[in-house]
């Protein structure tokens, strides 16, 4: 039933598709540092060519009990549970910004452990539940 024409088209398509998938894979791989929306504290610690004048984004969790808010600035620690970076920021924060939640800070590194942010974005996780349920879960943990 399969004519040679049909087979020819199928082979041609399969070949070009494979080639382009491989090509795209390598393109994405070489671009991967640009595709990353933010760097984790570990990635910053391990990178050798840290540029202190370039704006970068650092992301991770806001460490528990690290958030200090006074009238002039907000201080907190971003952690990826291996390494940490202290962040200083003055300005408004999104509603979802709290301890033990995801955060992305945009700004400049002062040194590898200290970061001055000029914008804070909140990154929430994939869990959705009603508030009553969250209360029950918290009590169970205690």
């Amino acid at each position: 039933m399969l004519t040679t024409k049909v087979k020819k088209r199928a082979y041609l398509l399969a070949a070009t598709l494979t080639v382009s998938v491989v090509a795209i894979f390598f393109i994405l791989k070489s671009l991967s540092s640009n595709i990353l929306y933010f760097k984790s504290p570990t990635e910053i610690k391990n990178s050798n060519d840290t540029n202190f004048n370039k704006k970068i984004r650092v992301g991770g969790m806001v460490k528990k009990n690290s958030l200090e808010i006074d009238s002039e600035e907000i201080k907190f620690t971003i952690t990826d549970f291996e390494n940490e970076i202290m962040v200083s920021y003055s300005g408004t924060v999104p509603n979802l910004f709290t301890e033990e939640k995801g955060v992305v800070a945009e700004g400049k590194l002062q040194d590898k452990k200290f970061f001055i942010a000029d914008r804070i974005l909140a990154k929430h996780d994939e869990n959705y539940m009603p508030p009553e349920l969250k209360k029950i879960m918290k009590e169970n943990v205690k």
Partner: peptide, 18 residues
């Protein structure tokens, strides 16, 4: 990649987190 967008809540395999 690291994205601002949250991971999938409903997975093809495994339970959903909604």
């Amino acid at each position: 990649w690291n994205t601002l967008h949250q991971p999938a809540s409903i997975k093809i395999l495994g339970s959903s987190t909604i």
